[in-house]
Design a protein around this nucleic acid. Sequence first.
DNA 1: CAGTGGTCTAGACCACGTT
DNA 2: ACGTGGTCTAGACCACTGA
Lengths: 255, 255
Amino acid sequence: MGTTRLATVPEPKYWQLKTVIGEALDSDFSVGEILPNERDLAARFGVARATLRQALEQLEMEGRLQRRRGVGTTVAPPRMGVDVSTTQHTWPGAAGQDSWQPVDSSMVVPPAAVARLLETRSGEEAHTVRRLRVTHGQSVATELLYVPSSSVPELSAIDAPSGPARARAVLRELQRLGLEGQERAVELGSARADDAKELDRLPGAPVLIVTTRYFAGGRTAAVSMATYRADTCRLTFGDSGDLEISHDEQERRAS
Amino acid sequence: MGTTRLATVPEPKYWQLKTVIGEALDSDFSVGEILPNERDLAARFGVARATLRQALEQLEMEGRLQRRRGVGTTVAPPRMGVDVSTTQHTWPGAAGQDSWQPVDSSMVVPPAAVARLLETRSGEEAHTVRRLRVTHGQSVATELLYVPSSSVPELSAIDAPSGPARARAVLRELQRLGLEGQERAVELGSARADDAKELDRLPGAPVLIVTTRYFAGGRTAAVSMATYRADTCRLTFGDSGDLEISHDEQERRAS
DNA sequence: CAGTGGTCTAGACCACGTT
DNA sequence: ACGTGGTCTAGACCACTGA
């Protein structure tokens, strides 16, 4: 990756840059290695920093680079497969479950979009449970679970007004219901300020939003909205989570 | 949405802008309506165009705006739910299936990343099938299906060297195999030049990449990589695709 | 503190779609 | 031809991290 000349074609410079750097990543760098800083890189390729940044942004979106303010740009490890399969007919927080840790809980009037999914009257209150999913020591997702108070009537006399203990209590109460099915959707979003903080990202970072509807008693008993880091996660549906793939960055060797 | 003053806080301007414009979208605009052009908007908010564009980019990524060069910026309709559930134990292109239309087919040596998923020898050739998924008159996804020649030995004597007819022939041959299961993964990517063209997007546009492994005869019989427009699609897993949700843009009323 | 990435500006020109 | 969004520049300053 030297002082490369860019072809003078209608193809955008940042696109060419992305390709060139991407190839260099495969051949000349190993995971965790730090790249030269943006000003140096821009000079090396003879472009403005903004243009160079556009290329780096794309590579970061594809999960090939990781940039941290005050630190630098490093080569990212391959995305980790995170299982979000819907076949396991269990409530969130079921016994023997891993990776999700309850953070907080409270009672709110859900936003209209959630209320619509819950099919509740628009003013009805719901318990919320905030959870954090940690995999390989990394926070990969936050979740906000909404449970209408009518779904768990036994829960009216609860001791703690908030905190992890309350979160566990709500989840425990959910297990008593017979789960009849669930329904899942995935879409692209950008991290809200609070989610971004918990995921150690900047606000607006690309995330994968997984919306789940839980059915019990012939109606929607709960709704969860999970926010996964799009840069580090590959969501897997099915039995095995060891797919090893994405773009064409296959043979990144540790030199 | 007038000549609004931006608060002078450490919060980035583009982030405030995104919020302000997003709210205006909910209250003052209806789907399909065109916004003022970028130069006007930037002037109205007293920021540089680059800053304004950063906000619009985010809104576009969230599927709330649609921008087209030479045309303008319009308010996007809510994302469409696209079913990608894995429970239907059918090969791609099975009879009675909708939305996917075969485009082309040929024979190639798969890239290393695909070969690894296929568990084939690295030099082994595979049939490819290119398909386009059209929903509500819109191209929402392209797919590249790899079928190792060893999976469909009967297919050696094929008439057409390429084209839709050949694609259909490969799919037809696949149906004869007993499908034992499939495995799916979703991750964020950026559109390659060829995919972008077919999806009517610019190269680098955010896309959701769905990788599927098809199992038959005790091994991986085929692998497909589908590229969905992330701005217009919400991938649904489960029976019903009429979830109506995303960010907090619930009450966008048609005024 | 020095060095990094993140934000922002005010310009310029280009590619594209419509008229 | 015109107006749109897309690309690019060469600066500036800010926010954060680590030594």
